[in-house]
């Protein structure tokens, strides 16, 4: 479903952020993407989201290729990808429900669809009672749940979670990870970028891909053998 084929991503000032990385994420898979800061985790996320393009190599996502995709298709592709960030990226002047509804509204969903979907998604992330709360009235964990509800509005094939627990305490981290597991169990692939090794160790059943200085150094799917 998602493939990176010999992908190198270089920036003029900082050099290679990724160097000859190849990996595949299958439909419905749950996967940790680990590595220290600057290892290239976020670059992989942005490449999958087609916010950036490889300097060398190709990214394929759900039938779209980074080599051939057109501007309008990028918008359509992004409706198949849910994205969560460490800093939540919620609109501060809108309630939890409005933040979720916004993602539907700006992609042309009809009002009746929005009215039906938003409460269901907030209930799915455990925030049915906080629909009218502003982000400033929610805890970090709750804000991340709103961001996840927003990421799920288009029933994506994959959720890309870029350090979603980076700003959260241990309890909230567990809660967010359980939520991601639930999302995954309903058939959505999840790629979770994290440098929280405790979280990784606590879930040995989950595939782990490790990056180091832009190189893929470990993939547990390859029988745990360093690559």
């Amino acid at each position: 479903m998602i493939s990176l084929l010999h992908v190198t991503k270089s920036y003029p000032r900082t050099g290679d952020a990724l160097a000859d990385v190849s990996l595949t994420l299958h439909k419905g898979e749950l996967c940790f993407l680990t590595g220290h800061s600057g290892a290239g985790k976020s670059t992989i996320m942005r490449l999958i989201h087609m916010a950036e393009f490889p300097t060398i190599g190709e990214v394929r996502v759900s039938g779209y290729s980074s080599e051939r995709i057109r501007q309008r298709e990028i918008a359509l592709l992004r409706r198949k990808i849910g994205f969560c960030f460490q800093d939540f990226r919620l609109l501060q002047d809108r309630t939890a429900a409005e933040n979720v509804a916004f993602a539907l509204e700006v992609t042309g969903a009809r009002p009746q669809v929005i009215r039906a979907k938003v409460p269901r998604l907030l209930a799915q992330v455990g925030l049915a009672s906080k629909a009218e709360a502003l982000p400033s009235q929610l805890s970090g964990g709750e804000q991340q749940r709103v961001a996840m509800a927003r990421a799920l509005v288009h029933e994506p094939l994959v959720v890309l979670a870029d350090e979603p627990t980076g700003n959260l305490d241990e309890r909230a981290t567990r809660g967010i990870f359980e939520l991601l597991r639930n999302i995954n169990q309903s058939g959505t692939a999840v790629l979770l970028a994290t440098h929280n090794l405790e979280l990784v160790r606590a879930n040995p059943d989950v595939r782990v891909i490790e990056l180091d200085h832009g190189r893929l150094v470990y993939d547990s799917a390859a029988d745990g053998v360093p690559v």
């Binding site: 501007q71 918008a75 992004r78 990226r89």
Partner: peptide, 10 residues
């Protein structure tokens, strides 16, 4: 940025 993130067209 959020509009672009969730797939709004340009």
């Amino acid at each position: 940025a959020i509009m672009q993130l969730v797939g709004a067209t340009n």
